[in-house]
Simulated scan of single mutants.
Amino acid sequence: MVTKKITIKIPTGLEARPVAILVQVASQYESAIYVECEEKKVNAKSIMGMMSLGLAAGEEVIVSASGADEEEAMENIEKYLSSK
């Protein structure tokens, strides 16, 4: 399992379209991927779960991935969340 603290740099934060893209990125991998913010932990492959976090630009989240392709999954999710 890999865990990383990532700051969201997407200017609009995670509203509908960026969440949909994040779910698509996460869904490419076999690994279980979770995003945690404050007391909430949701499956990164769940569009409704991700929307429920209501994340804004500049917020920090903890992303964890566990599975055969966890390193690659973490790398690409970090790349997406850190894009401007």
Rank of each mutant, 00 (worst) to 15 (best):
E39T: 14
D69T: 06
E38P: 03
V19R: 01
A44S: 08
I47A: 08
M1V: 15
E59P: 03
E15A: 13
I47Y: 11
S83H: 13
S46Y: 06
L81A: 00
K4D: 03
Q24H: 15
M48R: 13
I6T: 04
V63T: 03
N76L: 12
E78A: 12
S52V: 10
G49D: 03
I62L: 13
E70L: 05
K41Y: 09
A32P: 03
S52C: 02
C37S: 14
E15G: 10
K5P: 05
A32Q: 15
A26R: 03
G67C: 06
M48P: 04
E59A: 05
Y80V: 03
V42Y: 05
A73K: 08
Y80G: 03
K45E: 08
S66Q: 12
M51Q: 05
P11D: 05
T7S: 12
I33H: 00
Y29W: 08
A44D: 02
V35C: 02
A16M: 11
A68D: 11
K84C: 08
Q28M: 10
L53P: 02
A16F: 09
K79Y: 02
A26F: 11
K5C: 06
E78V: 05
V42G: 00
K9H: 15
E39Q: 11
A56M: 08
G49S: 03
K41F: 05
G58V: 08
M74Y: 09
N76F: 10
Q24S: 15
I21C: 07
E39M: 11
E38F: 13
K84W: 15
E39C: 07
M48A: 13
A65H: 01
A73N: 04
V35P: 00
A68L: 13
S66N: 14
M1A: 14
E71R: 10
S46G: 01
D69W: 00
E72L: 14
V23Y: 01
I77G: 00
S82E: 12
A32E: 14
M50C: 04
Y80M: 09
E78C: 10
A32T: 15
A56Q: 12
G58K: 05
M48Y: 15
S66T: 14
I6P: 02
K84T: 13
R17Q: 12
L14C: 02
I10D: 07
I21M: 10
S64R: 14
R17I: 04
E70A: 11
K4W: 11
